[in-house]
């Protein structure tokens, strides 16, 4: 039963990748990953979009991970179970379930217009951060709560302070699950097209963004823009950009996998 389910899931993934590769067979080469988009479908590439997505991933990770993990540690390890704390927890859980397009509207009002950042990489990163932080908090809080209380007691019983308990026992024990939780949240951010479209992401730019102030461009919005074009050549480009996005996500999974292997068996 379980094996059958696994096979169905696996074949769905292989089928999806296969279809994308067939669709994109004409455009996929090294040039495609580096070149900017072009009016001529055959000459177009995803260089700026890849750079934009890398920027976004980096910025979102740099802000959302410390903020989210810190909040989760506070909620799970420090906060007394008061009504206020419980309210904060349920608000975060609800925020984690809000559709990403809603974050786009909020980001447009807050970052693009309110702070006057315009449709820049930075505005995109901040919007995606807002979307990612609640997910990081929810995932990491679960990871911390999965560490049995006996471990905390054992450490407290040996005269450790709360911070020593958290730093030396709880965080190392929860590390694989924390990393998985952060990656899952980041993957959602990397794959999100809707909020970036709301902000006004560009799909035709001739240069790769070199700083957070450059125009916002990213793989998911590039895919959307190309897929929305009627001419056939652009559909192949959309498929190619999808392959690029999957590769980026696979790379993130690889980091996670490598770390898991290293951690394996250290805690039961």
């Amino acid at each position: 039963m379980g094996v059958a389910a696994a096979l169905v899931t696996m074949s769905a993934l292989i089928l999806l990748t296969g279809v994308l590769l067939v669709e994109a067979r004409e455009v996929l080469d090294w040039r495609f990953f580096l070149d900017p988009p072009s009016r001529v479908a055959a000459e177009g590439g995803v260089g700026p979009a890849v750079a934009g997505s890398l920027w976004l991933t980096f910025l979102v990770a740099a802000i959302a991970v410390p903020l989210g993990v810190g909040t989760a540690v506070y909620l799970a390890e420090y906060a007394p179970p008061t009504r206020l704390v419980k309210a904060v927890e349920s608000v975060l859980t609800n925020l984690a379930g809000v559709p990403s397009v809603v974050y786009g509207i909020a980001g447009l009002a807050l970052f693009v217009r309110g702070l006057g950042l315009g449709p820049s990489i930075l505005a995109g990163a901040l919007t995606l951060t807002a979307l990612t932080v609640p997910l990081v908090v929810v995932n990491c809080r679960k990871a911390l709560q999965a560490v049995p209380d006996e471990f905390r007691w054992a450490a407290f019983g040996l005269g450790a302070s709360r911070w020593q308990v958290v730093r030396d026992q709880v965080l190392p024990a929860a590390a694989p699950a924390l990393l998985a939780g952060c990656c899952a949240a980041l993957l959602r951010a990397v794959g999100a097209a809707a909020p970036l479209l709301m902000l006004g992401a560009v799909s035709f730019t001739t240069f790769a963004p070199g700083s957070p102030n450059d125009p916002l461009t990213a793989l998911p919005t590039q895919i959307f823009a190309w897929a929305a074009r009627p001419r056939e050549g652009f559909l192949a480009l959309a498929a190619g950009a999808s392959v690029a996005l999957l590769l980026l996500m696979a790379a993130m999974h690889l980091v996670l996998f490598a770390h898991r292997r290293r951690q394996k068996g250290t805690w039961s």
Binding site: F151, A154, G159
Partner: peptide
């Protein structure tokens, strides 16, 4: 000091387990 009903050793070496309290101190 306290010894709990379950040993709940830390997933580390014997040395690190015994040294934990000393280091925390």
């Amino acid at each position: 000091g306290m010894v709990f009903q379950k040993a709940t050793l830390f997933p580390k070496s014997v040395f690190d387990n015994v040294a934990f309290g000393l280091r925390a101190k």
